[in-house]
Computed example of a mutant assay.
Amino acid sequence: MKNLFYGLAAALIVMLLYRFILGGKHKGEIEARYKQPIISQLSDQLKKQSPLCIYEGPFPIQPDRTCLYCNTLLNAGLIDKQESGNDARYTYSLTAAGKVAYRDDPEPGISEPRPRLCMGDASLDSIVDALPSMELGGIRYLSFKYRIRVANPHPWLKDKGIPAMQIPKLVPTENVLDEVYTTTARIIPNSTDIEFDSGFRYGRWVNKP
């Protein structure tokens, strides 16, 4: 009887380790009670903080203005620079590709227009995998992988992507980025807000990109 008890206890421990630490080996889905809030919040974030955009401008940017992302935009080929005067200062202007990407129209949920260069309009395409959620310090965490769909893609996305902006190209058959993204939802009890942390990992995704 004692051996049976210990055997059952050991089996239970193994199952718990598999579920909460290893996260299982099969592709999972977001738990039903969290699925809609997470998808809604992520979709909203992709609209307001698009990974396809760099917020900079208006252009040209004169030497007396700070340009936080001009080096990135230069490397991407979306702007160029011209020397201004004899003090090695520069004026930054849009290239032809940059003019295609530049926007200053209103964004959903944003009251003031924000000048930006966007390689398309990002939205959630699909959830491709998920781990069982875990609780730590009274906060629930849920890791999942997803793909991004792109409406109105910049022509460069179809050919090579934009490595300087860490934006991959589109898959050959449709307007979906050729990369699977991983993030962890941080769910606070009794709150409607969900935060996302792309650097936090647990379970079988620890030390994975």
Results as ranks from 00 to 15, higher is better:
1 M>A: 15
2 K>I: 09
2 K>D: 11
2 K>S: 05
5 F>A: 15
6 Y>V: 10
6 Y>L: 14
7 G>T: 08
9 A>E: 08
10 A>I: 14
13 I>T: 13
15 M>K: 09
16 L>E: 06
16 L>D: 05
16 L>I: 11
20 F>C: 00
25 K>C: 00
30 I>C: 06
30 I>A: 07
31 E>W: 00
32 A>V: 13
33 R>Q: 15
34 Y>G: 02
35 K>Q: 15
36 Q>Y: 07
37 P>Q: 02
39 I>K: 09
43 S>N: 14
46 L>W: 03
47 K>L: 14
47 K>D: 10
48 K>L: 05
51 P>T: 12
53 C>V: 03
54 I>N: 01
56 E>K: 10
59 F>I: 04
61 I>Y: 08
63 P>Y: 09
66 T>W: 10
67 C>P: 11
69 Y>C: 04
70 C>R: 07
71 N>A: 15
75 N>I: 00
77 G>S: 01
77 G>A: 03
77 G>Q: 00
79 I>R: 03
83 E>L: 15
84 S>V: 14
84 S>K: 08
84 S>T: 11
87 D>V: 12
89 R>H: 10
89 R>M: 10
92 Y>V: 04
92 Y>H: 06
93 S>E: 02
93 S>I: 00
95 T>R: 01
95 T>S: 02
96 A>K: 01
97 A>L: 07
98 G>S: 05
100 V>R: 02
100 V>P: 00
103 R>W: 08
104 D>M: 13
104 D>H: 13
105 D>I: 09
109 G>E: 00
113 P>M: 01
113 P>C: 01
114 R>K: 15
115 P>I: 01
116 R>V: 08
118 C>I: 03
118 C>P: 10
119 M>I: 01
120 G>Q: 06
122 A>H: 12
122 A>T: 10
123 S>R: 14
125 D>F: 12
125 D>I: 03
126 S>E: 14
129 D>R: 06
130 A>N: 04
130 A>P: 05
132 P>W: 03
132 P>T: 04
133 S>R: 07
134 M>F: 10
134 M>Y: 09
134 M>K: 14
135 E>I: 13
138 G>L: 08
138 G>V: 05
142 L>V: 04
143 S>P: 05
146 Y>L: 12
146 Y>P: 13
147 R>G: 06
150 V>D: 07
151 A>Y: 10
151 A>S: 15
151 A>F: 11
152 N>A: 11
153 P>V: 09
155 P>V: 00
156 W>K: 09
157 L>I: 07
161 G>W: 02
164 A>I: 12
166 Q>V: 11
167 I>R: 02
167 I>C: 02
170 L>E: 08
171 V>F: 05
171 V>I: 15
172 P>T: 02
174 E>C: 03
175 N>H: 12
176 V>D: 03
177 L>Y: 03
180 V>P: 00
181 Y>V: 08
182 T>L: 12
184 T>H: 04
185 A>P: 02
185 A>I: 01
187 I>Y: 09
187 I>S: 10
188 I>C: 00
189 P>E: 05
191 S>H: 12
192 T>A: 14
193 D>P: 00
196 F>M: 06
198 S>D: 14
198 S>T: 11
199 G>D: 12
203 G>W: 08
204 R>Y: 02
204 R>M: 01
205 W>S: 03
206 V>C: 02
206 V>T: 11
